[in-house]
Amino acid sequence: MSATEVRPARAGAEPARRRRPELPSSVLGLVGLIAFAALLELLPRTGIVSADYFPPFSEMVRALVEAAGTDRFWAATAETVQAWGIGLGIALLAGIGLGLLIGSVEVLRRFTASTIEFLRPVPSVALIPLAVLLLGLGLQSTLLLVVYASFWQILIQVIYGVQDVDPVARETARSYHLGRWARVRYLIWPTALPYVMTGVRLGAAVALILAVTAGLVGIGTGLGAEIALAQSSNAVPLVYGLVIFTGLLGVVVNLAARVLERRTLAWHSSVRADVGG
């Protein structure tokens, strides 16, 4: 079993040497984005790639803006976000609950370890045909995939987190006769929290992937289904526009998860270290 992924992210501070006046990251990043957009515009315009398959950036944006004027687009977005939110919520509740239980009861952990290690890598998309047969097309099938994919990410992190309790702190808690709940509240939960947050971050990203995928393969509605529809009706710029939009949605999800991580872990050294750098 590994500990690398589970370790809470630790952003190292930049070395301070060779300081010379330089542009802030935001400006450089913006330059990068503009250069990238310009590249997307120029490649088809100069005929390096065929505009049939790769419309100029401006046309992708125009198709997206046009789509954004329709109710259909926002309904699809709402459906994707809904499947994502409900699925992630269920996975969080189940993952944290079971994770705390399994992680803190040695016997449970030993008996479940092999089963978890077997079920976790089962690709959730393998369940697609089963979901279609048992639950039909629609939200329930989508949810099955979303929950399955994000649940294991969260569960594993929580189990690792609970086991990471500092031996000295554990002995101290025992010496002070902390009760079961006090131990969970003041010892286990704070130790596990950074791992839980890593789990939330990974789970949120995976949940969005599956929420979109379900639409793409035709078992759910939402943005994935819109992309598939645009592709089959050969609306190439719209396909690109929608993909860009799902990417932006993904960026929002990632950023939100990171902000949440920082907020809840403001006291933790892995986050505090960033402040100075």
Binding site: S25, L28, G29, L30, V31, G32, L33, A35, F36, Y53, A205, L208, I209, A211, V212, T213, L216, L223, G224, I227, A228, A230, Q231, V236, V239, Y240, L242, V243, T246, G247, L248, L249, G250, V251, V253, N254
Partner: peptide, 24 residues
């Protein structure tokens, strides 16, 4: 620092959404 936002964007795209584009 120049490439970071572009890369973050690409990472955030749900990978299966790229399938229709790449198949084009």
């Amino acid at each position: 620092r120049v490439t970071e936002p572009v890369l973050e964007f690409f990472r955030a795209i749900p990978p299966p959404a790229l399938i229709p584009i790449l198949f084009l």
